[in-house]
Amino acid sequence: MVRRDLTLVMRNRADVATILFFFVIVVSLFPLGVGPEMNILRTIAPGVVWVAALLASMLSLGRMFAADHADGTLEQLLVAPAPLALLVLGKVIAHWLASGVPLVLMAPLLGLQFGLPADGLAVLMVSLLLGTPVLSLVGAIGAALTLGVRGGGVLVSLLVLPLYIPVLIFGAGAVDATVSGLGGQAHLSILAAMLVLAGCFTPWATAAALRISLD
């Protein structure tokens, strides 16, 4: 499943590039809008990068199941004699590899724009590495629930953004704490815990949501 989805992504590379450019541009707009005051930029950097990552990851959610829904592949997944939650997990992993990992890799470059110190950049990457899979996992539930609904894109953001808040708080908090010298360890541990929890439970919820959407 992961391999199939990744092959599909590779044949639609423009999609990944769009998400990445969205992320870069949103983050780059802030220094232009706020002005080149280094101290302010440094303070808002973690929040800005994280909010942009949330939005970018949310933008790509629509595609997670929509194409499969339209061409009937989703029906085949449901009637396949394999646990649907596992298939869902496979799709989520592929989604994260295509949309989350590029963000993680791009983040330090953007952090530099904001004058983040080296340890801050490292923690920013780690926090995104732990946090973006949670975004994909939780977002999958929203994407599954809004399948075939008119105006699904807006609905997804209403459903999913509130659930993203904890990830945002601890993700940006980890970087803040590191930069201010407190150490971001606690925040990162909580992010890791969220990842484990989301990894265990959201595939089942998504599978149930898919069954409802296709009924």
Partner: peptide, 21 residues
């Protein structure tokens, strides 16, 4: 459950063919 699904092959209205593959 899956025991039943293993016994059936379904070809629906939609082809479930990925255009890119």
């Amino acid at each position: 459950g899956d025991g039943f699904l293993a016994l059936l092959t379904y070809v629906g209205h939609h082809n479930a063919i990925k255009d890119e593959l």
